[in-house]
Simulated scan of single mutants.
Amino acid sequence: MTAPPRTPESPAAPRMIAISSGKGGVGKSTVTANVAVALARTGLAVGVVDADIYGPSIPRMLGAATTRPAVSPGGKVTPAEAQGVKVISMAMLSDDDSPAILRGPMVSKYLQMFVRQVDWGPLDILLLDLPPGTGDIQLTLAQTFPLSGAVVVTTPQDVSLKIARRGLRMLEQVRVPVLGVIENMSGFTCPSCGTVTHIFHKGGGEAVARELGVPFLGKVPLDPGVVDCGDEGRPVAAAFPDSPAAVAYAGIAAALAGTEGAQGGIATPFAWTLGDEATRPAPAAPAASAPPDRLVALDHEAGALILRWGDGSQQRLPDRDLRLACQCAQCRDEVSGKRLLDPAAVPLDLALTRVWSVGNYALGLAFSDGHSSGIYTHAALRALTGAEVEDV
């Protein structure tokens, strides 16, 4: 009897690691493809989601550009497999010259389909190759999936390093653990004399990692072979495993394989309809392993949401107070911050009806008056007191 497929919703889901960059042109997708191959060469089951919907490139680099996905008997999409890595991409659903002309909501829909509706089978690690920046796709991932962590790819160039800092700060704000920084295009070694020329400066990635207190995973040297192999669909990590670039990728893969990126706190994702015990989220175990400001358990009793935190503290927040504290655009002016919600319009007997996780950093709440558009960050909830509710 074969083991059931692991899915992102199950406790045995693969570790999901996002590969990101603040700006384009730093070689993030090349790094993703080669690190995926290097991880697979260690014996791990690896999948890659090409989350750059508008500019997909992973299938070509892995040699799966001509593959068209099929549909499994269970109605899920069967991913392509190349170099020992499973992959799904928008490039596999369209012709080479067909642009993806999609608005933000459709991009998010495709991204969720690539994760949830693909028959990945058993996986150890699922890499997500993100587009550059801090936009819709990054936010969708952070809010929808339980990311184990993220890696930021940069070059030693000052402009790239400054933008990489912004990407790191964005990840911190949405409570995605930063597993480390990779410095790509680190230096070029002359094949004739062995002299190393630092075309884009040197040491910047390591300095940024040290400055921000995150691990430095390694530097990948400039190597024309990396480009040639990527264009031919033979990642250098597989084609020339003893080359300096491939050795660097192997070191990064080993570092990622050894990082758990444990969030601590209550398991996500969850969507709890109050009164339905089957959907109630289980508390974290053990709670003591969670960071002090991480949500480790929640309950609801006597008209109030009960929150327990990693530092052992507990809050009791009445349903109506939570409704009055909503900061969504319907309840607060986005520019002035002025309250638009009239407290007199909120029934005294209003009740909380549903609670769901928004990534690892917030809760979504639905109420008996039909309101459900507010996002309550953990930081905002921890700061919420009776006095502050009255001032809202």
Rank of each mutant, 00 (worst) to 15 (best):
A271M: 09
T273R: 14
R308H: 12
L274Q: 10
L324E: 07
D342C: 11
L305F: 08
T268H: 11
A351I: 06
A288H: 10
S336R: 10
L340V: 00
D276K: 06
P269F: 06
G275C: 07
E277Q: 13
A285G: 10
A271I: 08
F270Y: 01
T259F: 12
R280A: 09
P286M: 04
P291N: 07
G251E: 06
P281R: 13
L298N: 07
W272R: 13
D342K: 12
A345S: 15
T279I: 04
A271Y: 00
I306W: 12
L295A: 07
G258R: 14
I252C: 03
A325V: 02
A285C: 09
D311W: 00
G261H: 05
F270K: 10
V296N: 04
A254D: 14
P292R: 12
R339K: 15
A282S: 14
D321C: 05
G359D: 09
D293G: 10
P292M: 00
I266D: 01
R316V: 10
P291I: 06
V358L: 13
Q327R: 15
Q263C: 12
G359Y: 07
D276G: 06
A255S: 14
A255L: 04
L324F: 00
G337H: 07
H300W: 13
P292F: 00
L348T: 13
D319S: 03
E277L: 08
T273V: 15
P281S: 09
D299R: 10
H300C: 07
T279L: 09
S313C: 01
G258T: 13
A287H: 01
A287T: 14
G359K: 05
L341V: 05
G265H: 01
A284E: 05
P286K: 04
R339N: 14
A267G: 13
H300R: 14
A287Q: 15
W356T: 12
R332G: 04
Q327E: 14
W272N: 03
D342N: 06
I252F: 07
S336C: 07
A302I: 05
D333Y: 01
A304D: 06
R316T: 11
V358H: 00
L256C: 11
P343A: 08
D349F: 10
T259H: 14
C328P: 04
L317P: 02
G312E: 01
A325S: 15
A297P: 11
P318R: 01
A267H: 06
Q314G: 05
E334T: 15
A254Q: 14
L274W: 00
W356I: 02
A345N: 00
C331D: 07
L322F: 03
R323H: 08
I252Q: 07
E277T: 11
A271R: 15
V346L: 01
A282Y: 10
Q330A: 13
D299V: 12
A262G: 12
R332V: 14
A257Y: 11
C328E: 08
A255K: 12
E260L: 14
Q327L: 13
A278C: 11
G337S: 07
L324V: 03
D311C: 01
